[in-house]
């Protein structure tokens, strides 16, 4: 890269400025050491915690779902109260595919992703009607509630309140049976999540991703620069919906069950909480938040079994009152202090 810049006559005259500019532009896309550590640790968990694969699968699915929400909240600035709609749709499509079409998991995954993505494309324009946050909240919530009601009423198709019966999933790639201990399931979830993460990372560090950041930062300016705000938001919304659909499908396929619970309001609220626990706008927030959420949930349930939501609410409230930015800056501030001490 730097070779081509240097050989170019215009930049050759001022290699310094050109290099600095290029370095700055490449900054967001560069793989940081902490990222490599994160993924190595995640991969290691597969071997180090063999008896926890079921729980770990749950965490990864929740993390992927929260990652999809981060794409629209963190990168497009759209607050959604109904992201569960896409998760639930993906879950049901995966279930129905297995019952009526084929038990082959990848087919179900892809069809679920498509269905959720199409729903995102179809309902996304509603977000652009009046760009007020309250309207967006209500539209996303409304779509999710509509879907829940629809699934509830269409009991002939979805099994209604009893859940969809008879979901069976064939061995992955025809070779790996989904076992009782969740080993195949966890490997499957990990690989799918990692692949989608790489895809999402690629998208948000592209020029398109940069234009989303600009829209979130200052839509007025973006518009006056000729950036087509509507289509850009629609694009990321559909992409986010697609990923949420995959997360839903993973849940159905690894638990071999799907019920109305996947569309309930608390799914949308929980995933928001997960994302906030981990931090918004840097893609890892969802994954880290999912781990924190499950740990907290475990801990609170141990104290007061039925009322863990109370403590979760309290944690969320404290996070907001302290200020999310202050909390997000905490690790960086600590790191800086540590480094300074190193030098001293």
């Amino acid at each position: 890269m730097s070779d081509t810049t240097l050989s170019h006559p215009a930049t050759a005259a001022r290699p310094d400025a050109g290099q600095r500019a290029s370095r700055d532009l490449l900054r967001r896309g560069r793989l940081k050491p902490a990222e490599i550590v994160f993924w190595l640790a995640t991969a290691a968990s597969f071997f180090l915690l063999p008896d926890r694969h079921l729980l770990l699968s749950e965490i990864v699915i929740l993390g992927l779902f929260a990652l999809s929400l981060d794409l629209i909240i963190g990168y497009a600035g759209v607050v959604s109260l109904g992201h569960g709609a896409f998760f639930g749709l993906g879950a049901y499509v995966a279930g129905l595919v297995s019952v009526h079409l084929t038990g082959e998991p990848l087919t179900g995954l892809i069809l679920a992703a498509l269905a959720a993505g199409i729903l995102g494309l179809a309902t996304g324009p509603l977000l652009l009607l009046r760009a007020s946050d309250l309207t967006r909240l209500m539209v996303t919530l409304g779509v999710a509630m509509l879907l829940l009601e629809a699934a509830n009423r269409a009991a002939w198709l979805t099994g209604g309140a009893d859940g969809l019966q008879g979901v069976t999933i064939n061995p992955l790639l025809g070779r790996f049976e989904f076992d009782l201990f969740g080993t195949t399931a966890y490997a499957y979830c990990l690989i799918v999540t990692f692949a989608l993460f790489l895809l999402a990372r690629r998208v948000v560090t592209s020029p398109y991703g940069l234009s989303l950041l600009a829209i979130r930062d200052n839509a007025l300016r973006a518009r006056s620069m000729g950036i087509p705000v509507g289509p850009r938001i629609l694009g990321i919304y559909a992409f986010s919906a697609l990923i949420a659909g995959v997360a839903g499908a993973l849940l159905t396929q690894t638990t071999m069950f799907v019920s109305l619970d996947v569309l309930a309001f608390h799914r949308s609220a929980d995933v928001l909480l997960v994302l906030v626990l981990g931090g918004v706008g840097y893609l890892y927030g969802g994954l880290i938040g999912a781990i924190a959420f499950k740990l907290l949930q475990d801990w609170f349930s141990a104290i007061t079994p039925q009322y863990w939501m109370f403590w979760m609410g309290l944690v969320l409230m404290v996070i907001v009152l302290i200020g999310r930015d202050n909390l997000n800056a905490l690790p960086r501030t600590l790191m800086r202090r540590l480094r300074r001490e190193d030098r001293a």
């Binding site: 607050v79 946050d133 309250l134 918004v280 609410g313 969320l316 409230m317």
Partner: peptide
């Protein structure tokens, strides 16, 4: 929280709803 983003306000008030629901139940 008046000057905070709508996301913060949504999070805060959802937290309040959770606490009110679980607390009443409790």
């Amino acid at each position: 929280l008046y000057r905070r983003s709508h996301l913060d306000q949504v999070l805060f008030s959802i937290a309040l709803v959770f606490m009110a629901m679980a607390g009443t139940d409790w």
